Computed example of a mutant assay.
Amino acid sequence: MTAPVQLPVPSEGEVTVLMPVWRGDRPERFAQALASATIEQTEPPAELVLVIDGPLGEGLEAVVAQVEDGAFGPARVVRASAHEGLARALQRGLEACRTDIIARADADDLCRPQRLALQRSAMEQGGLDLLSSAMQEFSDSTPRGGGALRTRPLAHQEILDYLPRHSPFHHPAVMLRRSTALAVGGYRALDFLEDYWLWERMLLGGARSANLPEVLVDYRVDADLFARRGGWRMFVSDLRLQRIFRADGLIGPGMLALNLARRAAYRFAPGWLRRIGYRLVVERMR
């Protein structure tokens, strides 16, 4: 029986890419996302931590086998026997990472080649704990570089001012410090909003933050994206998170009412109107 390959322990300052995958992902997109976040980077990560959230189909397992064979560089695979959801998958991965600097990546978006180099440099020079960047949308009908931009406030104080109204970071483009995230409890289960809740706890806990103006991730937008962002289940998560913000002192009763009114209008609008609303409201709230 062949002994498992012993991976070298990453050095201080090196980066781990953390990527979850589940049965709903598509093998060809998964393989492209993996390559973009690892071997296609100008400064490849020290390691990839791939979290498998429950059973996968044959096509996805074939890509995982490539990961285990080293096709995407040094990697470790963390498996959950049953589908547990994104928050639990990411928490498993966060706990498994061996570097303090972690770059989040999704299994269908594409990182631009300079992403890790630019973000790592900014993290170190700015003494940052939490950093994201702009993203640009693409789809099967819209090529990379041709879609709408998604931006967020750049400076730390602007981010703090923006936090009560909307998530100030793009999750697929985030780089964070593992120690800072774990100190506030890491990812906790909250449907669709586990990232926003983590940012709130990190920032209230004193995390230093910024956003880069450069587009470092191409964000895949399929036909159903905005349809999935609506409905009662999403609004219930909104309600829970806004109550947490109120209890934490981030917002007062007036902002609570205003935020819930805005989110109700957004969640219960038709999908086509929700797309327009995102462009006109969220992207212009800065």
Rank of each mutant, 00 (worst) to 15 (best):
144 R>N: 06
161 D>T: 12
133 S>A: 14
202 M>H: 01
174 V>H: 08
185 G>S: 00
120 R>I: 02
248 D>A: 12
215 V>P: 07
217 V>H: 02
215 V>H: 09
126 G>W: 06
182 L>I: 08
192 F>G: 10
146 G>W: 02
208 R>G: 02
127 G>C: 05
187 Y>E: 08
253 P>Q: 09
166 H>Y: 14
155 A>P: 03
124 E>F: 08
128 L>E: 06
233 R>C: 09
139 S>E: 05
202 M>Y: 00
253 P>K: 00
153 P>E: 12
212 L>K: 04
196 Y>L: 03
148 A>K: 11
211 N>P: 08
251 I>P: 04
122 A>W: 02
238 D>P: 03
162 Y>I: 01
182 L>Y: 05
122 A>C: 08
195 D>G: 06
155 A>L: 12
247 A>K: 15
205 G>Y: 06
220 R>P: 03
137 E>W: 10
121 S>T: 15
249 G>A: 12
240 R>F: 14
219 Y>D: 15
214 E>C: 05
184 V>R: 01
122 A>S: 05
236 V>G: 01
254 G>W: 13
158 E>F: 02
211 N>M: 10
249 G>M: 10
121 S>Q: 15
128 L>P: 03
122 A>K: 06
148 A>S: 13
130 L>A: 00
150 R>G: 13
127 G>Y: 09
213 P>Q: 07
153 P>T: 01
237 S>D: 02
212 L>R: 05
208 R>I: 02
167 S>R: 09
130 L>C: 03
230 G>I: 02
207 A>R: 04
178 R>Y: 09
224 D>M: 09
241 L>P: 01
255 M>R: 11
181 A>E: 01
185 G>Q: 03
237 S>E: 03
222 D>C: 13
223 A>M: 11
134 A>G: 13
226 F>I: 03
165 R>H: 15
229 R>F: 12
184 V>E: 12
237 S>I: 02
175 M>K: 03
122 A>R: 14
243 R>F: 15
121 S>A: 15
166 H>D: 14
215 V>R: 02
170 H>M: 13
153 P>N: 10
139 S>G: 14
236 V>A: 13
208 R>T: 12
200 E>W: 14
249 G>Y: 07
251 I>Y: 04
210 A>L: 04
222 D>Q: 12
144 R>Q: 12
245 F>W: 05
154 L>K: 05
185 G>P: 02
138 F>V: 02
193 L>P: 04
133 S>W: 05
207 A>W: 10
234 M>H: 14
206 G>T: 10
128 L>A: 04
214 E>F: 01
235 F>E: 05
180 T>Y: 01
162 Y>G: 00
221 V>P: 01
247 A>S: 15
226 F>D: 04
250 L>S: 03
229 R>E: 10
